[in-house]
Computed example of a mutant assay.
Amino acid sequence: MKIRYSKTRLFSNLLLGSLFTLWGTVKWLEGSASYFGYFQLLLGILMVGNFFFERHNQYLKIENGFLTKHSLRKKSLKLEEVVQIKSFPGKIKIFTSEENLSINTGIIDEDSIKDLYPVLGSLKLHQKENPFLGWSQTNS
């Protein structure tokens, strides 16, 4: 199961990246590009590249008992090793005995977050350690 980025995040990155790339390219072709113009061009190319990376990989993947967060440094947790989950406004922190994973809920698509909560609620933890315990599709 893929937990997707919100469309707003994806397409704002594409729009801003395209504008930066276009502006930097125009300055470069005019011959009036300074370091700032080259920086804009580079930043635009990186933002457009980030759009394609995020659109292809999406934010989280839950597969074969692992929760994987896709970013520059991919991070995975085995769901059965989770010992505690903390929920904060706009953020979920998942802890194992060795590491933790932070999830920014503000950038997740609304339909995908409704898929994430039941998965987190199904983990066998004490009620004190799992604020999503008992969460089901009917809660969404």
Rank of each mutant, 00 (worst) to 15 (best):
I3M: 03
I3A: 04
S6R: 08
K7C: 03
K7M: 11
T8L: 14
R9P: 00
L10W: 03
F11V: 12
F11S: 04
L14W: 05
L14G: 04
L15I: 09
L15N: 02
L15A: 10
L15S: 06
L16A: 12
G17L: 03
F20V: 03
T21W: 07
L22E: 10
W23A: 13
G24A: 06
T25G: 08
K27S: 13
G31P: 08
G31Y: 07
S32E: 09
Y35M: 15
Q40P: 00
L41E: 05
L41M: 11
L42E: 07
L42F: 15
L42M: 14
L43E: 10
L43R: 07
G44R: 03
E54D: 15
R55T: 06
Q58P: 07
L60W: 00
K61A: 08
N64I: 11
G65R: 06
L67E: 00
L67R: 02
L67A: 05
T68N: 06
K69A: 11
S71R: 14
L77P: 01
L77G: 02
L79V: 12
L79N: 12
V83I: 13
Q84H: 14
Q84C: 12
I85Y: 05
K86N: 12
S87R: 15
F88C: 06
P89G: 12
G90T: 10
G90V: 08
K91L: 12
I92R: 02
I94A: 00
F95D: 02
S97C: 07
E98N: 14
E99A: 11
N100W: 10
N100S: 15
S102Y: 01
I107T: 07
D109I: 05
D109K: 02
S112L: 04
K114V: 04
D115Q: 11
L116W: 01
L116D: 00
Y117Q: 00
Y117T: 03
Y117S: 04
V119L: 03
G121N: 06
L123R: 08
L123V: 10
L125E: 13
H126C: 10
Q127P: 04
K128A: 10
N130M: 04
P131K: 09
P131T: 12
L133I: 09
W135H: 14
S136H: 06
T138P: 02
S140C: 13
S140H: 13
